[in-house]
Design a binder for these strands. Structure first.
Length: 497
RNA sequence: GGUCACGUGGCCGAGUGGCUAGGCAAGGGUCUGCAAAACCUUUUACAGCGGUUCGAAUCCGCUCGUGACCUCCA
């Protein structure tokens, strides 16, 4: 089955381009992961969920995707670039922990959230600290090629030099000459030749906890180096897709390009993808602004702005309703609407999963309009996904199919009126796109309130000495691993041990 | 200040030169013991002002408004 051509908006060319992998059917996908010095917030979740859909859809199309998403466990610097502290080291000092304890704690938390959101684990999840030798080696190559210089144990990337031969700013659309001209006043203590230069290796101050030996003394790798090194190590000197949040476009990704080009002479990335920001009341959600909502707060309903708890799948559905290149604003009302929509979809998925094609009557006519509607909706879904992963359009097609499923359930439309082929296509498309591509799945409900109801029935049966019913209830409950226990002061239910 | 986005109906959000996006909410109807759900149906649009065009929400210009990046950020 052919699904048509996939087109991806490439930030580098600012155009949608037909996706052609370098080495089909293999696809290399690199996504900038989190810096693990604190819990991920909903904005982070949006980006990772979005690229999860990219990964899922590419896989659905039959590509063999190597999906690499790093863990940044050397903190970027806090505050003013040169005098700042490493975020992870700072947090470690603050909480009197080993930096790697901080890293482990928040990595675990990140994985838990990803799992709750049904994001598939990447093929490789490399860490920055696990690739120090490779980073040192890239620094050496950049120096050899004349695009970096050492000062007092730190190594800086020479942006002006690089820009003479290449184009620094090609990804973010910046004009470096203007930036150079606009910042002529250099600080006296400034080690850099130009303010636009950036550190690729940084000398560790005596109090700096995270430090490694290098040809330039004890230090730690620069802010953008890890992604350059790890993407090329695992995906090659040229690979297909590099993604991340829009706020990483500059300087992070611009610097990545510069480092790679300065090291190897070649820009490794063919398609750059950037997902837009999640906002609250129109303002970007970010750690530094403090206007963040944590996933746990949302899932548990403890956030002050939310009237109720919203499950991970509701959040995922909510995110998929917006195209990834648009900003999306989160609010209680919007999540409430998403919850209703999500449940409507899930109910339809349950319905169609349990429905089989049957044709008992002989004189049933094919309902041409229904068949055409279904084909059109499925077409919409694939067109949407192919058009730069437009999940919002795909969902519109899905909901048109949901309507058909509900009509089938009511018996207003019979499977036989669709014909076997269309019925199976409807069933298969709806389930596979919703579950495999969009990653929306049924969540196991909390059954406690329901068990309480049964417990009440049990208590009543006991009281009226209806022991047949008591035994029956016990047996039914036991079948799902629940037992009723008669204590002196009443009956309770518990998980069978 | 520089660069770049965006402004769609009650809300959220696609689309982008002529063809019903979708979800939520609201009104009416069908069904139902009553509900709920579902199905059918209706209402409310493209910030403002100009321009291009047979035709613009969609292209161009201006105005107003909002945001992002330029410093760590997904």
């Amino acid at each position: 089955m052919s699904f048509g051509e996939l087109r991806i908006y490439n930030s580098l060319t600012r155009k949608k381009e037909i996706f052609e992998p370098l080495h089909a059917p293999h696809v290399g996908l690199y996504v900038c992961g989190p810096t693990v010095y604190s819990d991920v917030h909903l904005g982070n979740c949006r980006t990772f969920t979005m690229f999860d859909v990219v990964y899922r859809y590419l896989s659905f199309l039959g590509y063999k995707v190597r999906y690499v998403r790093n863990i940044t466990d050397v903190g970027h610097l806090v505050g003013d670039a040169d005098e700042g502290e490493d975020k992870i080291a700072k947090k470690a000092k603050l909480e009197n922990l080993e930096p790697m304890e901080i890293v482990q704690r928040y990595t675990n938390g990140f994985h838990d959230v990803m799992k709750a959101l049904n994001n598939i684990s990447p093929s490789i999840e490399p860490t920055a600290t696990g690739h120090i030798p490779e980073q040192i080696s890239l620094v050496e190559r950049i120096i050899e090629n004349g695009y970096a210089y050492e000062r007092n144990g730190s190594v800086y990337f020479d942006v002006e030099k690089y820009n003479q031969n290449y184009h620094y700013g090609k990804l973010s659309g910046r004009n470096i000459e203007e930036q150079l001209a606009g910042h002529r006043t250099l600080d006296a203590q400034e080690e850099k030749r130009q303010p636009v230069d950036f550190a690729i290796w940084k000398k560790a101050n005596p109090e700096h906890i995270m430090r490694w030996h290098s040809p330039w003394g004890e230090g730690f790798p620069g802010w953008h180096l890890e992604c350059s090194v790890m993407s090329m190590k695992y995906l090659g000197n040229e690979f297909d897709i590099h993604g991340g949040g829009l706020d990483l476009q500059f300087p992070h990704h611009e610097c990545e390009i510069a480092q790679a080009v300065a090291g190897s002479g070649k820009d490794p990335v063919r398609y750059w993808m950037h997902s837009n920001m999640l906002t609250m009341n129109g303002t970007k959600m970010s750690k530094s602004l403090g206007n963040v909502i944590m996933p746990a707060e949302l899932f548990e309903g403890t956030n002050a702005l939310m009237s109720e708890a919203y499950s991970p799948m509701v959040l995922r559905f909510f995110m998929l309703q917006t195209h990834y290149r648009s900003t999306m604003d989160i609010s209680d009302d919007a999540l409430k609407a998403a919850k209703s929509g999500y449940l409507k979809l899930i109910n339809a998925l349950r319905t169609i999963r349990n429905m089989d094609y049957e044709n008992t009557a002989e004189d049933i006519q094919i309902n041409e309009k229904a068949v055409k509607d279904i084909q059109k909706s499925i077409d919409t879904i694939h067109k949407g996904l192919n058009d730069d992963f437009n999940t919002a359009v795909a969902l519109s097609g899905i909901f048109n199919l949901v309507k058909k499923v509900n009509t089938l359930q009511l018996g207003q439309l019979l499977p036989a009126q669709l014909g076997k082929e269309t019925f199976e296509l409807l069933k298969h498309s709806l389930l596979r796109i919703s579950e495999d591509v969009l990653g929306l799945q049924e969540e196991t409900p909390n059954l406690s309130p329901l068990i309480d109801v049964v417990l009440d029935m049990y208590k009543q049966a006991k009281e009226s000495k209806d022991y047949d019913k008591v035994d029956a209830l016990r047996q039914e409950a036991k079948a799902i691993g629940i037992v009723f226990r008669d204590l002196k002061n009443g009956s309770i239910w518990a998980y069978e041990e």
